[in-house]
């Protein structure tokens, strides 16, 4: 038979109801403090205007009495505020407890708590990655090897006898063109010199 402690039996609803009740009471006390302060101000004003000493004394006693009541209300309001603050902390603790209990039960959370299994899994993932990368690098090496073993076909891409003769003709024509240009330039500069003299 399991016995639950009073904190285990405590529900969030009970705490919320308690807080609401205290907030209501606190609001009522706040209103009464404001009302009493207004009364004190009013009586003080009347007392100043009053000429009769007896009535002034009466106002003074009344003001003091209301001040005492106001002081009592202020103390109660402070007590209620403190109480509400503690109940809010209790509510937060209940929420935290529920949160951590729920999240600890999550299956993924349980997986993470198994350190050995996690290390094994991570190593496996790393090895898979390394294997995949080495497949690519080996393929790249194979490409390079095959390309290196290839020899250029000289018949297609190389220079034949006829090609050699034509290339010589091209070079000669290029040289002649160059000499003609040089001669033209020399003549032009000589004419210019002559006209200046």
């Amino acid at each position: 038979m399991c016995f639950k402690s009073k904190f285990d039996k405590l529900t969030r609803e009970d705490i919320v109801d308690a807080i609401c009740k205290l907030e209501k009471e606190s609001a009522e006390i706040d209103e009464s403090i404001i009302a009493k302060q207004k009364q004190i101000d009013e009586l003080t004003l009347r007392g100043r205007k009053e000429k009769s000493r007896d009535i002034r004394l009466f106002y003074a006693k009344k003001i003091n009495m209301i001040k005492e009541e106001r002081e009592q209300s202020v103390q109660r309001a402070m007590y209620l505020m403190y109480n509400i603050r503690l109940l809010n902390k209790l509510k937060k603790a209940v929420d935290d407890n529920e949160f951590f209990v729920k999240n600890a039960k999550v299956s993924l959370g349980n997986l993470l708590s198994d350190q050995k299994g996690l290390a094994k899994f991570l190593n496996k993932a790393l090895n898979t990655r390394i294997d995949a990368e080495s497949v690519l690098t080996e393929a790249d090496e194979t490409f390079q090897e095959v390309e290196a073993s290839y020899e250029k076909n000289e018949s297609i891409y190389g220079m034949g006898k006829d090609d050699d003769a034509l290339l010589a003709v091209f070079e000669t024509e290029e040289t002649l063109e160059g000499e003609e240009e040089f001669a033209d330039e020399a003549n032009a500069s000589a004419e210019q010199q002559g006209s200046e003299e």
Binding site: R12, E13, V16, I19, C20, E23, K24, A27, D30, K102
Partner: peptide
């Protein structure tokens, strides 16, 4: 069901806010 319970908790918080807000 858990989501509905969370909604209920938030409604409780709203209750506190409205009771306070009456001031």
């Amino acid at each position: 069901y858990e989501a509905d319970k969370k909604i209920k908790n938030r409604i409780d918080d709203l209750k506190i806010a409205l009771v306070k807000g009456n001031a």
